[in-house]
Design a protein around this nucleic acid. Sequence first.
DNA 1: CTCCTTACTTAGATCGATCTAAAATGTTTC
DNA 2: GAAACATTTTAGATCGATCTAAGTAAGGAG
Lengths: 340, 340
Amino acid sequence: MSFDERKKSRVTLLDVARHANVSRATASLVLRKSPLVGSETRSRVEQAMRDLGYVYNIGAARLRVERSQIIGAIVPNLTNPFFAELLSGIEEVIGETGKVVILANSGDKVERQAMLLQRMREHGVDGVILCPAARTPPALSEEIADWGMPVVQVLRHISFDMDYVGADYAAGMRQAVDYLASLGHEKIAFAAHGPVQSAYQERVDGFRDAMLSKALDPGILIQFPTQLGEIAGATHLLFEQETRPTAVICFNHLVALGLSAGLHDCGLTIGRDLSLIGFDDVADEEAIRPKLTSVSTGPVTIGEMSARLLLERIANPDLPPRRVVNDTALHIRQSCGRPA
Amino acid sequence: MSFDERKKSRVTLLDVARHANVSRATASLVLRKSPLVGSETRSRVEQAMRDLGYVYNIGAARLRVERSQIIGAIVPNLTNPFFAELLSGIEEVIGETGKVVILANSGDKVERQAMLLQRMREHGVDGVILCPAARTPPALSEEIADWGMPVVQVLRHISFDMDYVGADYAAGMRQAVDYLASLGHEKIAFAAHGPVQSAYQERVDGFRDAMLSKALDPGILIQFPTQLGEIAGATHLLFEQETRPTAVICFNHLVALGLSAGLHDCGLTIGRDLSLIGFDDVADEEAIRPKLTSVSTGPVTIGEMSARLLLERIANPDLPPRRVVNDTALHIRQSCGRPA
DNA sequence: CTCCTTACTTAGATCGATCTAAAATGTTTC
DNA sequence: GAAACATTTTAGATCGATCTAAGTAAGGAG
């Protein structure tokens, strides 16, 4: 029994079966907790597994069964804490089901994203949670449909033929604009940044619509640099507009962090000289002073919801495509006041 | 040829071979870019792959070859941007080699970490980059050695029988203490946080040694709450010590962010009323004002180095264990001044 | 014309699990 | 005691690649 075993190669189910004096098939049934095996046999096999230090080989199993227990997640930028929180939600929910998450960073590059999707197909992932890179052609959704690969779009969308989970950015903008308007602001700027994609567009459109519905001019739209480190230095852009804004709504938490620092550098007091509203409400915004009034989109929750949606999609591929939009909430803190 | 194919099942290498009028073996050689196949045959097979939309099945291949092309990464806390940057470095290097990263969050729990390691073994990962959870028993390293699984410890270590990549925390502490001492500070506090683990210990010890070598009292060691949101509110702890510090060195960027906010809330001016030094120099520290003087440990670089070390270890399992320690650098900005 | 290279090509075993269909065993019924 | 039935167990095919060892064809040397 213990002669030629444990040479150095992996312990296989056949080894376990032999050690327990049953067939490979029976050992396999024990593994899968089938009610078919007798309790005496079951415990004998389980003991054998423990004795030999057996490790289940998912890869081998997957060859027969059409389930790899692997989920892919593709995000445009890993170092952005917003996506880190998103991933944390995804990993949490996927991990609970015993599956595993393959992580990949597209760097917001369409070709790189294509390569990553290909790589994930080769690994036989059961599905992918994708935050599509900017400028992803909508045709990608048809390609993915052809592949028969379950995919949930998260935060951004390229087509509503695929599931989508995001936040109600337009509603968030309305909350921000309404609040500033209620304080008496009329000259409100939108501080944008990053490449154009659906979430960008929805925020910009949401801002414009909200402004128009208050009969305000939505014309002050300023593009800030992509890198956090450069945003503060570009703060002066705010004061080079035709009409000087009394309040600023930020595209996301990076812009909020950057402008908060930049305004301080200009010797301005946030909330008195200029009102500032953040977006996304990521944890590290908590460290800004004065405390930042901010629209929260709940990245962790969105991650969790996208994971759940993907699991449902995998279980039931014929469901019609769904669209889940998380509510936003305005957290009023200290960065806004009446216009000077 | 195109009769019974594409039923709905996956296109296999055998399909490709038939379509190109060669054997499965030849098709496999083409796949692996073997120089053995004639160029005419090669292009015929490649054309067939394109025609049929063939997707390589790594899972099947791995059954024969002992390589899954999957690397595991286990970190204690995904939402901490420090670990997000680390992961970004890991993913970058691993991704370049065509491999893929499985991500997992131990939540700093030893049992959860054990479960994740087990899951990764079942997935047949080629190796794991592990930031060990606090209180991980050193015996884990023997267990891992028994498994024959290549593992690199990152940031924290439980045993030097396994490879380790980290930063020279003690040197970083020395840089911080020396700098503050050169400004005339004598009452320097260390603001700690989080559970005790090797990196914690090295920082605390480094602080103590650096203080002693300057003939200063290293006794002011304060433990702050784990959650970023609660640190600011605990700032008062700084002023409840027997001797009131004139400068504070932070355990990591979270403490720095929290105290920076908390000191502001107390009406104190950083750099004038109290000097503050951060640790880790994560990107979001850039948004703090006054700009934070900080010791950088370079998480992205550490991630990259750990990935490279793991790849080398996989290629050559018999190498003696190595220890790679990244240099730290003190970035002098605006958060320190002479003691009041 | 045979033998030896060189350059390709391939049949069939193999990796470690699952699944199907059938066999073995034990129990009850008539 | 045979038939019918329920309960366990199993042999052998299978998933999709790789690998070994052997085969074929063409060209060159003798």
